[in-house]
C-alpha cells in the first residue's frame, strides 16, 4: 500500500507518562507504541481517562513523557532545548481544540493570523494569508467578525484555518467535534479531510464520537494507557 510506504511522521515506542507522585500518582500512558505516517488521518479513540489527550500532548511537544521515545519528523522533541522545541511547534504543528480557543477580542482573520504573527510575519501579510485560508474553509466573507458572532461549527472552521495557515506538517485535534451537533461535526470533518489532509501532512484526531470514525484512515483504540487495537479503514482489515 501507498500508506505504508509513506514516510513516518510520528513514531512512539514504549512511551510512558505518570502524573503526580505518591498517593495521587496516576499513570496515564503505559508503554505506547504507535506510528503515524504522512498523508494519513489517524483517530485515537477510547474511554474517558484512558490517556488520549496525554498522548497527543506528548506527540505535539507540549508535554514531556517519562520513558520511551517519541520522534516527530525524526526529531526527539523531549531532548530539544525549550526554545527550539517552541520554534518547532510554531513551524511544524497545527492545533485544533475542543473549545476552539479563539481569542474573543480578535476578529476571526486576526485569530487565524496568530501563528504567522508568532513567526514574526508582518501584520498585513499575515492577515492577507489568513483571509485566504478563511476562504478555503468557506467563511471568507466573515473575516472581520468576532468569534462570538459565529456559530460553533463556524468557529471550528476558523480554528481549522488557524491550524493550517502556517503550513504545518502535523495537525493534532482534541475532540474537534464534541462541542458540535452531529451534522455540524460531520461537516467539520469533511472539511478537515478536504482541506487539511494532504500527502505530506499527518492528522491525529482524538475523539469519542463514533459517528465520525468513517473519516479515519486508521483508528487506534486506547484503554488504560495502552493501544489495544488498530484498524486500517482503507482496506477494512485489522492490522493485528
Amino acid at each position: 500500500m501507498i500508506a505504508t510506504a509513506a514516510p513516518v511522521a510520528v513514531s512512539c515506542a514504549g512511551v510512558t507518562k505518570t502524573y503526580g507522585a505518591g498517593q495521587s500518582r496516576v499513570t496515564a500512558l503505559r508503554g505506547i507504541d504507535l506510528e503515524v505516517r504522512e498523508g494519513e488521518l489517524l483517530m485515537l479513540v477510547g474511554p474517558s481517562g484512558c490517556g488520549k489527550t496525554t498522548l497527543i500532548s506528548v506527540i505535539a511537544g507540549i508535554l514531556d513523557h517519562d520513558d520511551g521515545e517519541c520522534l516527530v519528523f525524526g526529531e526527539n522533541l523531549r531532548a530539544l532545548p525549550q526554545a527550539r522545541r517552541t520554534a518547532f511547534r510554531g513551524e511544524r504543528i497545527g492545533f485544533v481544540f475542543q473549545q476552539f480557543n479563539l481569542i474573543p477580542t480578535l476578529t476571526i482573520a486576526e485569530n487565524v493570523a496568530v501563528p504567522l504573527l508568532i513567526q514574526g510575519r508582518t501584520w498585513r501579510s499575515s492577515i492577507a494569508q489568513a483571509r485566504e485560508f478563511l476562504d478555503r474553509v468557506g467563511i471568507g466573507d466573515r473575516w472581520a467578525a468576532l468569534p462570538s458572532k459565529l456559530s460553533g461549527g463556524q468557529q471550528q472552521r476558523v480554528a481549522i484555518a488557524r491550524s493550517l495557515v502556517h503550513g504545518p506538517r502535523l495537525i493534532v485535534c482534541d475532540e474537534p467535534t464534541s462541542s458540535l451537533d452531529h451534522e455540524t461535526g460531520h461537516k467539520v470533518m469533511e472539511l478537515m479531510k478536504e482541506v487539511a489532509a494532504g500527502h505530506d501532512r499527518a492528522l491525529v484526531v482524538v475523539t469519542h464520537d463514533a459517528r465520525i470514525f468513517e473519516f479515519a484512515d486508521r483508528i487506534a483504540r486506547m484503554d488504560d494507557g495502552k493501544i489495544t487495537g488498530l484498524t486500517d479503514r482503507r482496506n477494512k482489515e485489522p492490522e493485528r
Binding site: 505535539a60 507540549i62 526554545a83 517552541t86 520554534a87 518547532f88 511547534r89 510554531g90 513551524e91 504543528i93 492545533f95 481544540f97 480557543n101 481569542i103 496568530v114 501563528p115 508568532i118 513567526q119
Partner: peptide
C-alpha cells in the same frame, strides 16, 4: 497557553 502551544516564545 494556546499561544505558547502555537509556538510563542517566552
Amino acid at each position: 497557553a494556546a499561544l505558547k502551544a502555537m509556538g510563542a516564545r517566552d
